[in-house]
Design a protein around this nucleic acid. Sequence first.
RNA 1: GCGCGCAUAGCUCAGUGGUAGAGCGCUUCGUUGACAUCGAAGAGGUCUAAGGUUCAAGUCCUUAUGCGCGCACCA
Length: 747
Amino acid sequence: MDTTLDKAYTPKDTENEIYSFWEKNGYFSPNDKKEAHPFSVILPPPNANADLHVGHAMYVIEDIMIRYHRMLGDNTLWLPGADHAGFETQFVYEKHLAKIGKSRFDFDRETLYKDIWNFVHENRGTMENQLRKLGFSLDWSRNIFTLDPAIITTVHASFKQLFDEGLIYRDNRLVNYCTKDGTGFSDLEVLYVDRKDPLYYMKYGPFTIATSRPETKFRDTALAVNPKDKRYKEYIGKTLEIMGLLGPISMTVIPDPEVDPSFGTGIMKVTPAHDPHDFELGKKFNLPVTPIIDFKGRMDFSWFLSQKNIEPKYRERAEKYHGKKIAIVRPLMVEDLQSDGLLIKVDEAYAHRIGTCWKCGTVIEPLPLEQWYVKVAPLAKKALEAIDKKKVAFVPKRFEKTAKQWLSNFHDWNISRQNVWGIRIPAWKCVGCLSKQFSNSTIQQSSSWIITDGTPPTECPVCLGKNLVQDTDTFDTWFSSGQWSFATLRASGKDDYKNFYPTSVMETGYDILPWWVCRMLMLGIHMTGKVPFKTVYLHGLVRDSKGQKMSKSKGNVVNPLKMIDQFGADALRFALVFGTAAGNDLSLSEDKIRGMRNFANKLWNIGRLLLLSLENAKNSGRVIPFYSESLHATRLNDTDKRLISEINMLTSSVTKDMEKYRYSDAAKKLYDFSWHRLADQYIEENKVRFSEGDPEALSVFRHVFLTILKLLHPFMPFITEALWQKIPRLTTNPLIISSWPNQKSTV
RNA sequence: GCGCGCAUAGCUCAGUGGUAGAGCGCUUCGUUGACAUCGAAGAGGUCUAAGGUUCAAGUCCUUAUGCGCGCACCA
């Protein structure tokens, strides 16, 4: 064994070597000892085709938990995976297509899917190697992809079961639709932004109405007023002839207690096809759902133009508007409203919030579309009960309330996506039956669907027809992700589900609490009868040195790989934990990482001094005994004994912190003790003894330092392992699988 | 409107009712072998405000102010 060390620690030389040493020897896999307690964590699967960002580095908390429990001797599993990230990945792929002058519509479904598959798999290894660079002790032999057949099987089976139980249904209602990306979204994926837009006041029969969406007025089907509003009471129930841009329309005035009399003029126009509130109102009053905007975000006047005997003026207008985007039509309408004397005024800076596509920023259009919905309330109820019965604990505790709030307020969940890249929904329709039912041209009525476990059905159970068409939609990625905790363990082989479900801890960013954690709770409990995890630990967002959110456009993004390259993975890891409270956002600066690199170097040089001293002692024929209780009792002086007592106190205090998820505290104590107590005090005061080869001093120094290496290992796995392997000690185990210290332990 | 969080050193933030902390920055001094990615010494705080609980409050409770986040409404 080479016992000399370089003057400064160079992580680059050692990290890769140590990682492959660990991986090759299977240390990341569970020890499978029968008497061992199970401890399991499932890594939130990063997007398979994207590079890691510094937020992913926060999963270091999971590695700390895992390494700690592995050293405790627990049967420890940290399961890695990669996410196909349905819509998100397809979005990236479409950008890539655009660069080469193509679009997804140039390909048939199968080709497109295969092309995205290849695109993803070209990039997939990158993300995984980046996780390795971070030192994450993931069991790669169990690596799972969200599109692995075993996962798809589980997702299909759950869908069928939920459908059979009546917890999934098909409905035609207004969907949050992005006309640019061509897909609908769940409520959670709509990003609301504050904007200032014109509010148009226009003449509406005897009234004045205010609207920010004049383009929808062509398909208004009613007027609504607050029943308590005295100004309009007499109109309720009456049908009025109203002059519009395309001639007169007759409309009934209906009561709606939700109309705010103080907003605008207190009269609301009702457009069931393009406003969720109006849609519900329309259901109540039996109003027709008549769209004017199509799925590309264009005005569709075909319903009007197909009529006979239209006045030329109106035909001309409709033709002018037809097929154009909303933004183009609005000013045209304003002109026409003015020339018809219908425009009263325009409030140019009306402040409101508007739903946009979280990915591309396009304004979300509520459009009527048939989709699959999960009936959330019964599932949420079970999750709420589990929380109340303390079957799930939250760290920090305050997120329990947040989770409960979400679970109490979820609407039914639209899980259909008009994407190709994803798990296709195992639902088929019979063309024969369909043609018989198909009467209403604007709204497609629900008909009976054939749901299977994924196997294509051979014939229609109703008419025995063989012409069956599969739903072209795929699942919302979160529908499958919501089953990740049990789907993975069922897929990863052997007895993993039996041994490791429910998992010990679910650790992720608080920003996906509603998207992921709540859904895993709901689906996990419903599908398995058990909570999917016993503890939820949530970490905050990584921000820049000034506390600003990182973004590419601001140019303040910290690249974790660059930082690892520059300062080492241990330094980055320690910087992310040091001085960071669970659930709070944290500021990360290069300065902080550099500071932690300096700490790593400090450790390195403590090790270097120890090794040099041991080597000198050996060369002069001294035998350095290993620390033991009898050595302690018979030979140590007070100075040495005091240090031993302090390292024992540190050990129990750090252990307590580890148990209570107080990683920042543990890290600080270790930093402080190593640097300021051991190096600055003990070593400085006893330097002469070391150089003289004092056996007791060196024995104590070695014992204390090895103990520190153990305690620090979960945080800084590379340098601690590297030093550990250089230092003569009793056990032969590498540090990663050596035992967590207690007050009696020898090293 | 509802909910959550934050307010502590110049900056960024920890802080588990018991003598105010860290990282970075700053000042002064110090390089013959552990480390200048260092060492020694130091400056810098009415812990946002007001009230309350307590032997004891940065910490618990109430209220206020400012900032941030989420949700709902938004014709």
